[in-house]
Write a protein that binds this DNA or RNA. Structure first.
Lengths: 360, 360
DNA sequence: CTGAAAGCGCTTACAG
DNA sequence: CTGAAAGCGCTTACAG
């Protein structure tokens, strides 16, 4: 690879001059410039190597996004994430900055953080203390998502609580009284069934944001005399395809399902169909996030304002200012999966699951 | 910011030693190591600055994706792209490499290419000669997508032609004879209506890949005596919300729509509904790509194998070997938007569009 | 086991 | 208008 030095030698000028030709051409005399450009072309020198420039300039011109703890970069392109990322990318686009998904968090959670070539970070949940500490050591601006950053760390959150409150109230207004909740499990472990129990507490929801969702449901249900601890909850990862069946089994007389993720809601719709239940005739379903699939699925859901969250997070990182905390509104999107409950009717038993049909 | 040097001084050792403590701890005596670690902690030194390391090592540990010509990074998170990107990300995940979306292509198409801190590139279409030249000058491995790379440039393609052939044949088998095509316009300009005309040629499709799609349709239709040049085509950008109406107006007696993008197909479904036509009762619709929205929309479409394309492209970049060309298969996914044609029936005139209802 | 030294490729204030 | 020089922060072969 030709370097500045090579070009300088070939053109018979100093390195400075070559550098100026590429970075500040007006400063250089016309014929000198032509000479340098000719030499560069001859040597196949494309311009100053950004690696060299970087060290001098100190600025990478990119921000990094740290993918959600347990998962991988590939997950930033499915489900809820793309909307958020599009917001981040939009702001990067405006500023001509690149966007890098930071890897190397598998074995050593902090390796990627310590080694990423970026000017700042956006950190998806779940975050842990170790990560935050490494981030702070890097002395680069960073923003934490979906969690309260506290006194030292900027954060952007959404008001999931009021969105979920609106969702539950919407179902209440339609006349529903028997609910079941499909809640978020932080990891891919087996789904947990939480039957009604006194003082069950917020543990039935996974991350802080999910606990906000639960509080929102509770806010709405409580004035109607429904104690959130009396509502059956199944806690599962959104990719857990068995969760919907588990939930309908655990709550056979529920007329309305509150799902903490659209993917889960769509699974419930599928499982309902399999059981011969119509949505929303026999069962109403509400999701959360408003992912691209929600509109074609005609799913009533809570828009979690992902793009705006991304924009805001990116702006905070670029600004690099003092600690700030932002909370974005969420909006109930009423579509076609919610309707008044049918007259009392218990779910039919499921047909045997396909996976087990050999045994049956 | 504390540097290696600062830590060395504080610990009373050489820079080399500090470097070894972080990169090769076994090489350093125990108490020396402790002394260095203590000093590092005291100074808030997180470890060697990657910017410095980069220059020595020469490797960034990241590959770059260049977003599609006319668009921006934000578009890599909508429509067809996320599947592709997820494939790229998967391979990066495996190798612990970061993934950067290269920006700075707006004003000066090549700035981003010349300055990105990456070890190689994946280039989305449309590409132009100037970009390819800059890429070559960078002397980093790169792979071009959805286009034939020729003798000098590696490429990964999909066999869109046979997927589209299968799509058209599927409609033919159902009994359809009157088709219309919603084709791809490369930029966001106004939609083009191409009425039947002799030797209309491949110009009615936008990019090379789209011309392959057209050829696929033609392959299937021709044995049934249908000349592709006799099929009405509307050429529009997938985001153009007016295109579906234009198409149904231009082909009022079509019973089957071939759309070159799922987003377009979904628009056609919406427009059909607005006109009181049922899909697939009155109108069959086939898309292309199999984006996440396709399943909940119950859309028959051609899966364009996006994730695998991403994986393959990433692997080729990491391998950095000689020029290679790969072509991936595509698959028809029959879902619920295709059925036998209804008995002859002409589309009703549309109700006045909502935007114009004031005037009406 | 530890350190002095060279060098990765570039930029830029300074002097002429 | 042009060039000599310092330095960005690090790594590593080499010598001891």
């Amino acid at each position: 690879m030709a370097t500045l030095e090579d070009v300088a030698r070939a053109a018979g000028v100093s390195r400075s001059t070559v550098s100026y030709v590429f970075n500040n051409p007006e400063r250089v005399g016309r014929d000198m410039r032509l000479r340098v450009e000719e030499a560069a072309r001859r040597l196949g020198f494309a311009g100053p190597d950004p690696k060299g420039r970087l060290l001098r300039a100190g600025k990478v011109n990119a921000i990094g996004v740290i993918p959600p703890g347990a998962y991988s970069m590939a997950n930033m392109f499915t489900g809820y994430f793309p909307r958020f990322m599009a917001g981040v990318a939009e702001v990067c686009d405006e500023r001509g900055a690149s966007l890098t998904l930071v890897s190397g968090l598998d074995d050593d959670k902090t390796w990627g953080i310590r080694n990423a070539l970026v000017d700042g970070f956006i950190v998806s949940p779940p975050h842990d203390a170790e990560m935050i500490e490494s981030l702070a050591l890097r002395k680069l601006p960073f923003v934490v998502i979906d969690v309260d950053g506290g006194a030292k760390v900027s954060s952007v959150n959404i008001d999931a609580r009021s969105g979920c409150r609106a969702a539950a109230r919407h179902l209440l207004d339609l006349g529903h009284r028997r609910f079941a909740i499909l809640s978020f499990l932080r990891d891919l472990g087996p789904a947990l069934v939480h039957l009604p129990r006194r003082d069950r507490g917020p543990g039935v929801a996974g991350m802080p944001l999910d606990q906000q969702k639960l509080l929102g449901y509770a806010d709405a249900l409580s004035p109607s005399g429904i104690d959130i601890d009396e509502v059956p909850v199944v806690q599962a990862h959104p990719w857990d395809r068995a969760a919907a069946a588990l939930l309908l089994d655990a709550a056979p007389d529920a007329t309305a399902i509150l799902a903490m993720a659209d993917l889960q809601a769509i699974e419930v719709m599928g499982e309902a169909r399999r059981r011969g239940l119509s949505v929303p005739g026999d069962l109403s379903v509400v999701g959360f996030n408003n992912i691209p699939e929600a509109a074609p699925a005609n799913l009533t859901t809570v828009d979690s304002n992902g793009a705006e969250k991304g924009r805001l997070a990116a702006r905070l990182v670029f600004a690099g200012g003092p600690v700030r905390h932002e909370t974005l509104p969420t909006t109930l999107m009423v579509r076609g999966t919610t309707a008044p409950p049918a007259k009392r009717r218990v779910h039919r038993k499921p047909r045997p699951a396909r996976a087990r049909s050999k045994a049956g």
